[in-house]
């Protein structure tokens, strides 16, 4: 069985590699465009997937309302930008304030969702919390639909077309460049937070053993709240960036983006932070190549097929943990 898997994997990799190299030689610029496009997609997925994977790591819950937090980030940015735009403020100030408000609002929502929908179910069977998460997701979607509008709203990019970037803009636009750079910066900051700060270490400790964490004096509830807030903040940044890129948003954008990011998190190994980033990039880039070389209308089918394949052949994901623990 194991040999068949390896052989199968090698065969698929060989075919893909052969086609990849052929296409690369045939039209290098198109290939590069698709690759960069995939990188942009992957970056956005990564910003959302981090929230999924961190929350899963700490309380073993798939937070299905996470996509909605991302949508609320984009919505808040749209509202703030529209109002400030009417007042005629400078575009750079608008951009900064829109992002700040988006992050603050999303964090507030992420924090509240955890307190209302998950904390009372901390000791309940896992399925209860999962159902609660789906309920929260539906509630937030419909709440935003009622409070705002069901229609798509145009979202004017907060990121200007930089003049110095003009010569390369046909390969990758300023917005796309901004997305990649922002993502890299956010990842580095987050990595440092988790690795070196006290709260980061407390988050890792809590993910490994909640009772022991409380026995060394960690307030586990605060750590869980912090995890939701951090995940919401990165999702909000992702929401604003993608809205700038696509140019329109409505109450429903969080659903598909959330599912895709979830696939990315599972692909990388849910619960693992580097896994979420890797899974997102792999998913984004392979989606981009698939739509570019095969059928663009089957983009979502492709992503879900990947989910099915991982769940069959490697449910723990690329970087999923297998090691046994010593007790």
């Amino acid at each position: 069985m194991r040999w068949i898997n390896i052989l199968l994997g090698l065969a698929v990799a060989g075919i893909l590699g052969f086609y990849g190299i052929r296409e690369l030689l045939a039209d290098p610029v198109y290939f590069l465009e698709l690759f960069l496009g995939g990188l942009v997609r992957g970056s956005i997925y990564a910003l959302i997937a981090l929230g999924y994977t961190m929350v899963y790591g700490i309380i073993q819950l798939i937070n299905f309302a996470h996509g909605e937090i991302y949508m609320i980030g984009a919505m808040t940015a749209l509202i703030v930008a529209s109002v400030l735009g009417l007042w005629g403020w400078h575009s750079a100030v608008i951009a900064i304030l829109a992002v700040v408000f988006a992050v603050v609002y999303s964090c507030a929502y992420g924090f509240t969702v955890e307190k209302i929908a998950y904390k009372p179910l901390r000791t309940a069977p896992r399925l209860s919390a999962l159902i609660s998460a789906i309920g929260m997701s539906l509630f937030l979607q419909n709440y935003v639909m009622l409070a705002q509008t069901p229609e798509f709203q145009p979202f004017e990019s907060l990121i200007p077309d930089f003049a110095f970037w003009e010569p390369y803009a046909h390969i990758i636009t300023s917005v796309e460049l901004a997305i990649i750079i922002t993502t890299v910066v956010v990842m580095i900051l987050l990595g440092m937070l988790i690795k070196f700060t006290k709260i980061g270490k407390a988050m890792r400790a809590t993910a490994q053993d909640k009772i022991m964490s409380s026995l060394v004096g960690i307030n586990v509830n605060n750590v869980i709240s912090t995890t939701f807030v951090v995940g919401s903040a990165t999702a909000a940044i992702g929401g604003v960036l993608i809205a700038c890129h696509v140019g329109q948003i409505n109450f429903f954008i969080g659903f598909l983006a959330g599912l895709k990011a979830f696939i990315a998190a599972v692909l990388g190994g849910i619960g693992s932070v580097p896994g979420a980033v890797l899974g997102s990039l792999v998913l984004g880039i392979s989606e981009s190549f698939f739509t570019g070389y095969f059928w663009s209308e089957y983009e979502d089918v492709f992503a879900f097929t990947i989910l099915v394949i991982i769940l069959i052949f490697r449910p723990s994901g690329i970087l999923g943990k297998h090691e046994t623990q010593k007790v």
Partner: peptide, 23 residues
């Protein structure tokens, strides 16, 4: 709460030691 009790100076080494394995 357990963390408030630790704050007051009671600390436990639990059964099975409960080392954080990935730290």
């Amino acid at each position: 709460a357990p963390d408030d009790i630790v704050k007051r100076g009671i600390c436990q080494v639990p059964e099975g030691r409960r080392i954080f394995p990935y730290l």
